[in-house]
Amino acid sequence: MLNIDSVNKGLVIDHIQAGKAMQIYKYLNLDKMDCSVAIIKNAKSKKMGKKDIIKIEDKINLDLDVLGFIDPNITVNVIDNGEIIRKINLELPSAIENIVKCKNPRCITSIEQEIVNKFKLTDKEKKIYRCVYCDTAYEQN
């Protein structure tokens, strides 16, 4: 088992679906961070078989909507003095802004770049988000 130093003060993003860590790294702009960031891919998990984990050695303000949108099963552990002081369970956000773009070529957002890309959750069970302008469903892959 690969060993990564424990986080003393910061955040651990756990239970990421295996293979999705880099997507989250990108969405959260972690490449622009100055602190230590560890990405663990395909870690063994009793619950999931294998999972990804991201450890961040700093207390940053995470956009929980982004994380919830990508995968509401993710958990975020807030660490202080090497201990978990808070566990945050995510949920699907009711709306998201400027996280993803509408892929409908007939949508007004396809020609006017400055418009805020907004999606709203229309079906919680099936996790369907629709563009507020054209109602096109966003396909997550």
Binding site: N104, R106, C107, I108, E112, V132, Y133, C134, T136
Partner: peptide, 10 residues
């Protein structure tokens, strides 16, 4: 009326 969907909402 606009050919792009959502233009009147904008």
């Amino acid at each position: 009326r606009h050919p792009k969907e959502g233009a009147p909402m904008v």
